[in-house]
Computed example of a mutant assay.
Amino acid sequence: MLIASTSVATAQEAAPPAAAPAPEAVAAPESVAIAPAGTADGCELHVWPAERMNSITTGLLGGGLLDAALHANRDASNKTMLASALDSQSQLDALLSLDLRGMLKLSPGTTIITHAMPLERKTMNSVKTRRSSSQAKCYSELIVADVFYQKAAIYGRSLKTLFMVRDFGSDSKIDFEYKAWGGNGLKLFPPKEGEDALAALDELVGVFKKNFDEYAGNEAKAPRKPEKI
């Protein structure tokens, strides 16, 4: 009896402890609110990243089906790298690193709300009401519509970005809308074999921000409708 009891005790000591249950995956929030440095005043800016990435390379043929076929593999590779460097969160991070309130002439008390899920590109122009469920008394939107790499035989390499700002005021009717491209040249992207790929991807993010700076400068000059009385 003594031997059997000792054997059982030894076996229990040697047995590994039960594995802890695996932690449940936590989904990323669909939207994140970034409060102003001072007091929030009830105004909101909602920001969405682009759904669509595109790459077009044109040679001496100047475009067309044959030119597209000749550069199809290169453009597919470029789109993959674009999606890597400028995925949804990277676009939002790049925009949040800028002074959006100042560049878009918003009130300092504006709360910025980012949305992780891009809007469907085909609905960009057709939906004329607020794209969120917010009932804020002072409401505007910044939508990234397209991110577009282009290489042209004459003009070289560039990254172009289509942005749209819509201001609704206190209701669901658009008071002001401005949609336009920002575009700047590239020196490192796409990287060739043996070149620093990370530097080329970082360049995309930097030029993306420069494109918005260009867009915002033009947006500030666009005529507004008279304020509602």
Rank of each mutant, 00 (worst) to 15 (best):
I113E: 05
I113T: 12
I113P: 01
T114M: 12
H115L: 07
H115I: 06
H115T: 02
A116S: 15
A116N: 14
A116F: 10
M117L: 13
M117C: 10
M117G: 07
M117I: 12
P118E: 11
P118K: 05
P118M: 10
L119W: 03
L119S: 09
L119F: 09
E120K: 07
E120T: 13
E120S: 10
E120D: 13
E120F: 13
R121A: 14
R121W: 13
R121H: 13
R121E: 09
K122W: 10
K122I: 03
T123I: 12
T123Y: 12
T123Q: 12
M124Y: 14
M124T: 11
M124H: 14
N125P: 07
N125I: 11
N125W: 14
S126P: 03
S126I: 14
S126D: 12
S126M: 12
S126L: 13
S126A: 14
S126K: 09
V127L: 15
V127S: 07
V127R: 10
V127A: 08
V127T: 13
K128E: 10
K128M: 07
K128C: 00
T129I: 06
T129E: 15
T129R: 15
T129P: 08
T129L: 05
R130G: 05
R130W: 08
R130E: 03
R131M: 12
R131N: 06
R131Y: 13
R131V: 09
S132M: 06
S132H: 03
S132K: 02
S133W: 13
S133Y: 12
S134Y: 06
S134K: 04
S134W: 06
S134Q: 08
A136S: 14
A136L: 11
A136T: 06
A136G: 09
K137Q: 14
K137W: 05
K137D: 15
K137P: 02
K137L: 10
C138M: 08
C138G: 07
Y139N: 15
Y139L: 08
Y139Q: 10
E141K: 09
E141R: 09
E141F: 04
L142C: 05
L142F: 00
I143V: 15
I143M: 06
I143H: 04
V144F: 00
V144P: 00
V144K: 00
A145M: 01
A145I: 14
A145D: 10
D146C: 02
D146L: 13
D146A: 04
D146W: 04
D146I: 04
V147E: 05
V147R: 03
V147L: 06
V147M: 06
V147N: 03
F148L: 08
F148V: 00
Y149Q: 01
Y149E: 03
Q150Y: 08
Q150N: 09
Q150K: 13
K151C: 01
K151F: 04
K151V: 05
A152M: 01
A152H: 08
A152E: 10
A153Q: 05
A153C: 02
I154S: 00
I154E: 00
I154V: 07
Y155S: 12
Y155E: 06
Y155G: 01
Y155T: 11
Y155L: 08
G156K: 02
G156E: 04
G156V: 02
G156A: 01
R157K: 14
R157C: 04
R157M: 04
R157G: 00
R157I: 00
S158G: 06
S158K: 11
